[in-house]
Design a protein around this nucleic acid. Structure first.
Lengths: 221, 221
DNA sequence: GGATCAATTGTACAAGTGTACTAGTTTAGT
DNA sequence: ACTAAACTAGTACACTTGTACAATTGATCC
């Protein structure tokens, strides 16, 4: 709630409407996509008038910002809980993170919200900055596990392996997410991911990363 | 050009305008996102009148369909060329596919077009069907290589490993794509991907995939 | 029991939207 | 040269959009 009009949403009643608004906006984004998200629809969804909506969020952009913040906080809260209950064994910790993230893709909200965010980030500076922040935070526990499992890597290399693992999991969203063709296989995908990432982390050497590109695209056959 | 009005775009001149239209629409989708894509803007971009645009595409939806078809065909043509020049060695073939796809993510068009498509697929049936078709075709050469590199897997398992590899690469789009924070590391990411996927394909067993989920989320510590 | 400010409503407007429709111009075939 | 079809432009309409604004209700405090 950082983008509301100053001195607003401070009473109990005000806070309730604020949540109704954010919930309505999120629901519309998820069910209909950003192109169908309008102030009027949000107002209807929150069962308030357009004027009242504008009292809280003078512009659509202000609403969008807060909605993104709010939606992402919900995920980060859950993720933080997972971090706190971290296992001392880095391998088990890594496994639990992988399982958590991949299975979370099956959540209907996650399945549709994040692709919207990625598309938005290509044209909206705020969404772009927000994305960087979330995924940087998601990578932290990954980096920690990788570092401990493979001391040969320097931090820059650890970062890149963590980035690979994290982005790799995100990519499954469009295929194993809720309602997607391969949704039934989501647990199998989590298994493959676990096995694959663990082997990667244990066996990768600095040379594997730095290795020069071999020219294949041009002279193959 | 399957969704144009019947008996349209058959003269040389007509075909030219058709391409101008599709190009304009694609440019707007990439530069401004789907929410800003309007018939008027497309007409301006193609330097024709709205009326003329409607002559080719009676409805916005018809235009959208053809635009998606057309944009995807461009990628598939390139990809098909890669397939035809396939190496007999399945390992080299796999490597070349990985390198091609990952490095293609750095293409500005790819970077922004595909996230738009993924978001669209969550709310548009046609985009959803189209996505299934593209990625199924991308998976074919992957499945072929995997099958030859690891005969222990049955076809269903091969499919899942191919799906994992394919979706994994797509996930990098938002991080190493054009203009993204990690774009400089795109070749390193391709290296990690190559190393990781190759090890996965060679070493994975049917048991790794089928394995029951271990319960970690609930009782950790 | 006013005073003060948060919360809510309703209306209004300019700009943009998709699309229907009419009337022209250009092109190609005979 | 005539004709039919392909192509192009322009206008019009009903509807949605974001946002500005005035007016009213509600609650809280001294």
């Amino acid at each position: 709630m950082r983008n509301i009009r100053k001195g607003t949403g401070e009473s109990r009643r005000g806070k309730e409407t604020l949540l109704l608004i954010l919930d309505s906006a999120k629901t519309i984004l998820i069910e209909q996509g950003y192109s169908k998200l309008s102030m009027r629809k949000v107002a209807v969804g929150a069962q308030i008038s357009v004027g009242n909506l504008q009292y809280y969020y003078p512009s659509k952009n202000d609403l969008l910002k807060d909605m993104l913040d709010h939606s992402i906080d919900e995920f980060m809260d859950e993720f933080e809980r997972l971090r706190l209950g971290a296992n001392n064994d880095p391998e088990l910790h890594l496994k639990s993170i992988i399982n958590f993230i991949v299975l979370d893709l099956g959540n209907p909200t996650t399945t549709t919200f994040y692709p919207e965010l990625w598309a938005l980030a290509n044209h909206d500076e705020y969404a772009d900055k927000l994305m960087d922040e979330i995924y940087a935070r998601v990578r932290v526990p990954l980096e920690d596990s990788i570092m401990r499992l493979n001391p040969r890597l320097d931090f820059e290399q650890v970062q890149k392996v963590a980035l690979f693992i994290s982005s790799s999991m995100e990519g499954m969203t469009m295929f194993v997410g809720h309602g997607k063709v391969w949704n039934d296989s989501i647990q199998h995908m989590a298994n493959i991911a676990t096995m694959s990432f663990l082997q990667l982390v244990k066996n990768i050497t600095p040379d594997d990363i730095q290795e020069n590109s071999f020219e294949l695209a041009n002279h193959n056959g």
